[in-house]
Computed example of a mutant assay.
Amino acid sequence: MPRNPTALPPLPALQAFEAAARHESFMAAAQELNISQSAVSHRVRALERHLGYALFERLPRGLRLTENGKAYLPSIRSAFAEILGATTSIFGLNRASRLTIRAPLTYSALWLAEIVSRFSAAHPRIEIRMHSSVWAENLALDDTDVEIRLGYGHWAGYRAELLFTDPLVPLCSPRTLEAEGKSLDVADLASRPLVHIVGLEDQWHDFFAAHAPDTVMPKPKSHVHTDSSVAAATIAANGPHFCLLAETFAEHFERSGSLVRATDQTIASKQGVYLLTAERTGPLLPEVEGLKRWLRERAREQSICRHVSR
C-alpha cells in the first residue's frame, strides 16, 4: 500500500513515467528528458513505491504497462495537458511559433474566425494559418495542429473531443415569410422548395419526422443541393427556398437580417462539433494546448449564453 496516499507524487517521477510509457523504453525516455537511463528507472521505481503498485512489467526488450499503469496513464497525460494549457493561456508564450488550424468552410467563417482573432490578439507571437475544408476526411493529417470537424467523434488517426452540439433551425428570407401571408407550420414546409446540404440530406427528413410524422413530402420540386451551409443560407436569402442550419450559423444570419426563422420548431443534430488533434507519439506543444483551452472556453461560453437566453 502507499506510504502516504494523500501526498502528491513527485512531478519528475510522473514525467519519467509518462515518457517511459509513451516510448515503452527507459532508454528512449532518458534521451527525451536529457537524463540518464538509470535516473529514469530510479524515478519510476520511486513512483511505484509511492503508489504501492507496479506500473510496468520489465521485459527483456522494453516495457509493458500493467493494468494499473494503463489506468493511470490517461489521467497523468490529461493533467500535463491542463498545466500546459493553463500556463499558456495565462502567461502566454516567450517564443515565436506557428499554428495551423483547419475547419469546415462555414465554421471557419462564421464561428472560428472571431475566436482566432481574439486568440491572436492575446498571443501576438504566434503566427496562425487557417485552412477551410469541405471534405476533410480526404486531407492529410501532417499539416494541421488543430482541426474542427462535424461528425460522430470517431476518425482514425485523431484524438477527438466534443466541443458542442447545435440544434438545427429552419430559415427563410424575410420576403419569403412575408409572401406566405400566414404563420407556417412544419407540414407547410414539406411542400416548399428546400435547400439540401450534400452529406446532410437526412436532416430535413429528421425534421419532418420529429414534428410532423404524418406529413408526406411531395416529389422534390425546385429543390437545390449544395455542399456548404454558407451557400445554403445565401440561396435561401435570395429566393423562395428554405434552409435548415445549425443554430450557430442561424444566429449570424438572423443578426444580419438576411434570414428569419420559418417556424419555432428545431431538432437536435445527430452530429457534434469536435476538436481534433492528430495522434502523435509525444505531448502537444504548449501553444496547441493553449488554443485547445481557448476553444473549449468559447464553446462553454456559447452554451451558457444560449441557456440563459432561453
Rank of each mutant, 00 (worst) to 15 (best):
R64Y: 10
H131D: 15
E114C: 04
D227W: 02
L93S: 10
T100E: 04
L105A: 09
L63P: 11
H123I: 00
F207Q: 03
S229P: 03
I148Y: 03
L245Y: 09
G85A: 04
G52T: 10
W204D: 11
E127P: 07
G239Y: 09
S269I: 06
L291R: 04
I115L: 11
P283Q: 10
S191T: 06
R43M: 09
Q302A: 13
E48G: 00
A13M: 01
P9Y: 03
A30M: 03
E137V: 12
I35W: 01
S222Y: 15
E178S: 10
T87I: 02
A19R: 07
I101M: 08
E161D: 05
A7P: 01
V44C: 12
T266Y: 02
F242H: 15
P2A: 15
M217I: 14
S229A: 15
N94T: 11
C172H: 08
V198H: 02
S117Q: 14
G282Y: 10
S132K: 14
V116R: 00
P104A: 08
D206R: 15
H23P: 01
E178G: 04
G52P: 08
R61S: 12
G272D: 08
T277F: 05
C305D: 14
T176Y: 03
H123Y: 07
V169H: 01
L105T: 12
R118T: 04
H241I: 08
L47D: 06
A13G: 09
S41C: 06
A187C: 02
D185K: 13
L14V: 13
N4R: 10
I115D: 00
S133L: 03
L259V: 07
A16N: 00
L245C: 14
P60S: 07
L139P: 01
Y274L: 00
R293C: 05
E301W: 08
E251S: 08
N238M: 07
A299R: 06
A246Q: 12
A81C: 09
A246P: 04
E32N: 02
E297T: 12
F80C: 06
T176V: 10
F207P: 01
S36A: 06
W155K: 09
T144R: 03
R49D: 15
G282Q: 12
H23R: 13
A268G: 03
R98F: 04
M130V: 15
I35T: 12
P74E: 14
R98M: 04
H123F: 05
K70M: 15
L141M: 07
N34R: 13
T176M: 13
A209W: 02
A39N: 11
P170N: 07
E254Q: 15
E301D: 05
V169I: 13
I128D: 03
R3H: 15
L171T: 10
A209L: 13
P60G: 04
M130E: 12
P213Y: 03
P193A: 03
L171K: 04
S38H: 07
A190G: 15
A20Q: 12
A190R: 03
R300T: 06
A136H: 07
R159W: 04
L99Q: 00
W294M: 01
E24C: 08
R64Q: 14
A113S: 13
L184H: 09
I267C: 00
G153A: 05
R149K: 11
H196L: 11
Y53A: 14
N34A: 15
P60Q: 08
